[in-house]
Design a protein around this nucleic acid. Structure first.
Length: 917
DNA sequence: GCAAGGTC
């Protein structure tokens, strides 16, 4: 590797964080002539250490600096950065680039400046996949500044002298495959996260009144491959609790008092759900109540101290013992680390290296007023209290378990949480080098009329580690002495009932456990994902530090669940993790994994968007519809016609407005209001692949139009391939003749149309638009009078049981609605109208019609002819077909079909499920 | 204004 002797070379060493640069420099510079010098770089945190060292006989002048985690970020090209700049689906193919963000430029400049004078670079990044990726980021920057670099990677598993010296003498090459795996993760996370976040935010934010937010216009409904499964755990448990049906059970209890005390015997059958069975056995016991001792077993039991402390355990225990949030725990731990009191707090490692000098660490604690005496006992060989710690089998190869690094009896600037975390770290450390607690356990089994019962007694012989680990206890109870074959009459023998209980809501420790098990997040990020749920209003933490979903969190999960997707389950992440592993060991190639995964996710995204009705339905269960003109996402999607010539940033897309009219609008709306209105007589329009040869800037894609025959003059053709770039005379003439669907010219266009009987014109006028219902969008009534509101909030659920004689015209399609009687638990006997048409699922409670019936009937009559096929096109088609399930009407007036996710019954939804309690 | 991953 190195040349022998002679010329001194300069070596730039780079660590992942300042603390490692300092620690490694300290180790390598020890006993070196000239010692270690420190100077500032451009970044105030990342110092540069200088010392001399010899690597395999090559004298080196070492420069040692650091980065702070990733040096680069992945982002979409500028063109796709703005939310309205493109269809979110495009984010699966949009070009991405890696760049050094503003706040890391100082570090980049330091590296560039220092590497120019060096011949070698040694990468001391953490020895995990992320570390390897950061190594390549550093390399990228350094190679651009110095093309003739000799590149080396140092592999070390702990910051201890022997390891460090050994690793610098056995330098290796950086591992491209490890880095590739991280590239894959980054790109997938970015594309999935951004596309789904934009999609669901734009779809739902304006469409519902999000009553938890002061200004819901700024709220972001984010989606991420880690945050959503985390939410999924919370929702799943919540549903499990709601679905729980308490069940009564029966059990036989037996106690026996003697001079020595009381023994409680448990029935070895546990409990029975069958009362008759329970009573029968109980009666048998009562008739022959003499108990015979069939077994007496005495044994020594050990209760072991915990494994050395990893990050997750620290978070879990601080939550359990002090009710601290994982986020706060990490904040405090970071501060203690920065000030030298504890070791690096982000580690998976839960076993100490054999070389660690544990006794010196214990020694440091001997002077503590509370646990100092315990530390002294530990070091006293006479006490026999010492035990080499057992490992939990995890090792991140970069950091030791969390342990105290400096003695403190408490600092004045410390908060209560600082005291708690430091105390936990120290006591935990002292506990894991201690002997386990020892107990003597006695198990006694008895027989009464052929039924077996058992009792357990425990005496603690030596508390050992429990003396210092005050957070744990070991309950013990003394029972009288029994001998084999002994007979006695029980003091009590009772048949008791109980009911099964649902599991509790997830605690923070539970949640961390779920995430850890499913591989969601890393030790350094788990608390971030939990906090994100709270910040995004997806979940709340109650006073008992247990998590439950908010309405928003539940609705989102329910929406995706109803689609049949498991986007809220941990499987996606697990699959990604599996693929990353394959990339890192070279069994799969980076490009192939990226391509496959993104292709699948793109299809999934596309599919989810087609099924967005499910998300809307789920949201409608929990939230009021908003009156704001929204459904931003619904309107935002359309085929691109051209680049916007006004803002020059976004695309212009062809859209059909809710009233049926077509327009070409800029996706930059509302920042950019560029719009081209199309003739009101267009019945169909679609963007083709033909481009206009005369309009610029191009390309301007031509649109295939179909006009309504009766609304255009006879000398114009019904079919027309047109251009909106300004060159198309026919289109311009038809706009003049027929008008457009815009609000501004609707009155004049109405006049110019010359065909007052045309159905579309009746709905297009501004005055009519204002009097249309905000919920069902029909004219003739306002939202406060909307008949479909009867079923909003999912309180109206009906199953028809008889054919009625009365009927009204359907408010939706005009067909007759027949009066029927409901037969559900909540609404038995209540009358409702339901549409007869096979195509329509309109439904309204009779008692909600009140005085509005006549008006509704008129409205229906007048609009039914006008709505025709076009009205139906607005989203009715996808869920309008009759199914074997019972159908309902949502807040929008659209039919919903489905079934309860709790019990599976197609007759109702989960919010009214009787099992929900 | 979107993700998750480093770390200050």
């Amino acid at each position: 590797m190195a040349g022998g002797g002679g010329r001194v070379i300069r070596v730039l060493n780079v660590a992942e964080k300042p603390s490692v640069a300092k620690a490694v420099s300290g180790i390598l510079s020890k006993n070196q002539p000239g010692g270690m010098r420190v100077r500032d770089g451009r970044s105030r945190y990342n110092k540069i250490f200088e010392f001399n060292y010899t690597i395999r006989n090559q004298p080196c002048q070492m420069l040692f600096t650091s980065v702070t985690g990733h040096l680069m970020e992945l982002e979409f090209d500028e063109r796709y950065r703005k939310w309205h700049s493109c269809d979110p689906l495009d984010l699966y193919n949009a070009p991405v680039r890696k760049f050094v963000p503003e706040d890391k430029l100082d570090i980049k400049r330091t590296l560039e400046a220092e590497v120019r004078s060096c011949q070698w670079i040694v990468l001391w990044l953490d020895c995990d996949r992320e570390g390897e990726n950061i190594a390549f980021e550093v390399l990228d920057v350094c190679r651009q500044a110095n093309h003739n670099l000799n590149v080396w990677r140092a592999r070390f598993s702990a910051l201890i002298d022997r390891e460090i010296h050994q690793s610098v003498q056995t330098l290796v090459q950086p591992n491209q495959l490890f880095s590739d795996a991280v590239d894959v993760r980054q790109e997938i996370d970015l594309r999935i996260g951004a596309s789904f976040t934009r999609f669901q935010t734009m779809l739902l934010r304006g469409a519902f009144v999000l009553d938890f937010a002061t200004d819901d216009r700024n709220i972001v409904l984010s989606y991420g491959p880690c945050q959503f499964p985390t939410l999924g755990f919370v929702v799943e448990r919540y549903w499990e609790i709601q679905a729980h049906e308490p069940e009564e059970f029966w059990t036989i209890n037996c106690t026996h008092n003697s001079d020595e005390g009381t023994a409680t015997f448990n029935w070895m059958r546990g409990h029975l759900f069958d009362y008759t069975c329970g009573v029968t056995i109980y009666e048998m016991c009562i008739q022959e109540p003499i108990a015979t001792v069939t077994k007496v077993k005495q044994q020594e039991k050990l209760k072991y101290p915990p494994h050395p402390l990893s990050t997750i355990e620290l978070e879990k225990r601080a939550s359990r013992y002090f009710r601290m949030s994982s986020e706060q725990t990490m904040k405090v731990a970071e501060d203690l680390y920065q000030n030298g009191f504890i070791s690096y707090p982000r580690t998976e490692t839960d076993s100490f290296s054999e070389k660690t000098d544990l006794r010196t660490m214990v020694q440091e604690q001997e002077g503590h007023p509370v646990w100092g005496i315990y530390a002294q006992r530990l070091l006293d060989p006479q006490s026999g209290l010492w035990r080499n710690p057992s490992g939990g089998g995890h090792d991140d190869k970069a950091h030791p378990p969390i342990h105290p690094t400096k003695f403190s009896a408490g600092e004045t600037r410390w908060s209560q949480d600082h005291h708690r975390v430091y105390e936990l770290v120290v006591r935990h450390f002292l506990a894991c080098v201690s002997q386990p607690a020892v107990g003597a356990e006695t198990i006694v089994e008895i027989d009464i009329a052929g039924e077996s019962f058992s009792a357990c007694g425990r005496v603690i012989l030596a508390k050992n580690y429990l003396d210092v680990y005050r957070f744990e206890s070991w309950g013990g109870s003394v029972i009288p002495t029994y001998s084999f074959g002994q007979q006695f009459t029980p003091t009590t023998l009772t048949l008791d009932s109980g009911v099964t209980r649902p599991p509790p809501l997830l605690s923070e420790a539970d949640l961390l456990g779920c995430m850890d098990k499913a591989g969601i997040g890393t030790d350094a990020t788990m608390h971030d994902h939990i906090k994100k749920l709270l910040d995004r209003f997806y979940a709340i933490k109650d006073s008992n530090t247990r998590f439950s979903p908010t309405k928003l969190g539940e609705a989102l999960v329910m929406g995706y669940d109803d689609m049949g997707y498991e986007l809220w389950k941990p499987y996606l992440r697990a699959m990604m993790e599996c693929d990353m592993k394959a990339v890192s060991i070279g069994t799969k190639r980076k490009v192939e994994v990226l391509e496959t995964c993104l292709q699948q996710m793109k299809a999934c995204f596309s599919d989810a968007r087609t099924n967005k009705g499910k998300l809307l339905e789920a949201m409608a269960i929990f939230f009021e519809r908003s009156n704001r003109s929204s459904g931003g996402e619904q309107q935002a999607v359309g085929d691109v016609v051209r680049r916007c010539g006004l803002c020059l940033e976004s695309d212009m897309v062809l859209r059909q407005k809710p009233d049926g009219n077509f327009m070409v609008g800029c996706l930059g709306y509302p920042q950019c209001r560029n719009v081209v209105w199309l003739p009101g007589s267009v019945s169909e329009a679609s963007v083709t692949e033909n481009t206009c040869t005369s309009c610029s800037p191009g390309p301007v894609f031509k649109i295939q139009f179909k006009f309504r025959r009766l609304e255009i003059p006879p000398n114009y053709s019904v079919q027309h391939l047109g251009c909106i770039g300004g060159c198309d005379d026919i289109l311009r003439q038809l706009v003049e003749i027929c008008g457009t669907g815009s609000r501004n010219n609707s009155n004049t266009s109405g006049r110019g149309r010359g065909n007052p009987t045309a159905s579309s014109s009746a709905q297009r006028g501004n005055s009519r638009a204002q009097s249309s219902c905000a919920y069902c969008r029909q004219t003739g009534h306002l939202s406060n009078d909307c008949p479909s509101q009867a079923s909003r909030g999912r309180t109206a659920r009906a199953q028809e049981v008889d054919n009625g004689e009365s009927s009204i015209p359907c408010n939706s399609c005009g067909a007759p609605c027949i009066l029927r009687t409901a037969n559900t638990a909540n609404n038995r006997g209540r009358k409702f109208f339901s549409c007869q048409s096979q195509e329509c699922n309109f439904f309204v409670w009779e008692d909600n019609l009140n005085g509005g019936r006549a008006e509704r009937a008129n409205t229906s009559a007048s609009t039914s002819s006008g709505r025709g096929g076009r009205g139906r096109g607005r989203g009715r088609g996808q869920s309008g077909a009759h199914s074997s399930n019972v159908s309902f009407v949502s807040a929008t007036g659209e039919p919903i079909t489905g079934r309860c996710f709790i019990c599976g019954d197609p007759g109702h939804f989960a919010n009214v499920c009787p099992r929900r309690g």
